[in-house]
Write a protein that binds this DNA or RNA. Structure first.
Lengths: 200, 200
DNA sequence: GTCTATAGGAAGATAGAC
DNA sequence: GTCTATCTTCCTATAGAC
């Protein structure tokens, strides 16, 4: 492994860490397992990262980014509110079904970070980011086209409802393993949200 | 510690384990920390439990029982559907706000068990139990009094929606720390469920 | 920068005296 | 049954040759 830029090495280690965590869980992601996955010697770890905690902070940032990119890229586009809402929900759900391991990991990481004194701040910011994303999603649903819509509940409340419902349905699927059953519950959520949008 | 019945010791160790886990997280609940909390010598652990995994199985059973007892004891009683639903939700929510640590622990334990090969079965059964409890709750709402009600969606779908929504709102509160905001989202759920009950 | 070798500690589990 | 002392293993982190 001759003279790789340290930044490149950092990236590879973060990717390797995510791979190990998705496959075997956060607790299995020891420095040894991570460097083995990245095919590097153990010693390389500590001249790329000051500590394991520093790596974990970066892992959380990357994973959070993944989820948000997908969610927000699908809000745009034409059509009526119901269609766009349905499309956004379906895109999110497709990602959950395609990559359940990555979603399971986000929950594990949030919990892990919340317990780790040095990472508690990261965990809080992570959830704020999700709430902000869902707020933008809701505002994008009403703001972008000619229809003048008003939600029958305040946007902050709706954003929390959507965040909670998505989390809950995802967790249901991850734990029960039945995509059809969880998908039906998600449709109930989507219909509810559509009903909360009253034409002004 | 003279001649305590082994069964008594087992109970004390389970309680101590829960105390440590609520305070410091599942990963902090080492055999050493648990026996220290129970004020017992380390050696006593392994003549009460064959392994740490065996203890964890019992911890999960006890914690699951706690949550279900509270939830189901509040379904009964008189009043219209909306009132009883509201009462049940409020009782659940009160427990979450009073004992956030215990609820946080249920999520941590589910995840931990799902990763542990010997406990994966326990994790699946745990979620089945929650679903069954919410199904009973929904049936109790319609079945017990003179009103003849019919849900506008199938009961299994509704049960999953309720399970997911409660989980999601609880998680929102645990991560955001704002009981008022999460409570408002929960009310949205309660109103939605009430609307799904059409008089037959 | 890169690697091998190892320090230093904490984990689960057990041996064996009482 | 009860407890102390210890085994074995695995962890994060570092020292130091190249």
């Amino acid at each position: 492994m001759n003279r790789i830029a340290a930044s490149e090495r950092r990236e590879r280690l973060v990717d390797a860490a995510i791979a190990v965590m998705v496959r075997d869980g956060v607790s299995a992601a020891t420095t040894r397992a991570i460097v083995a996955e990245a095919d590097m010697p153990l010693g390389s770890f500590h001249y790329c990262f000051r500590s394991k905690e520093e790596l974990l902070g970066e892992v959380i940032a990357v994973i959070t980014g993944h989820t948000l990119e997908r969610a927000l890229s699908e809000v745009a586009g034409g059509g009526a509110l119901e269609e766009r809402l349905c499309r956004a929900m379906r895109a999110y759900w497709q990602h959950v079904v395609d990559e359940p391991g990555e979603h399971r990991l986000t929950y594990e990481l949030t919990q892990y970070a919340a317990r780790q004194p040095g990472l508690a701040v990261v965990a809080e910011r992570q959830y704020e980011t999700y709430l902000a994303a869902n707020t933008r999603l809701i505002e994008a649903l009403t703001g972008d086209d000619g229809e003048r819509l008003e939600w029958s509940v305040p946007v902050p409340v709706l954003a929390r409802y959507v965040t909670a419902a998505l989390d809950g349905v995802t967790l249901l699927y991850l734990n029960e393993g039945n995509a059809t059953a969880a998908g039906e519950a998600l449709e109930l959520v989507a219909r509810h949200v559509a009903e909360l949008a009253g034409r002004a």
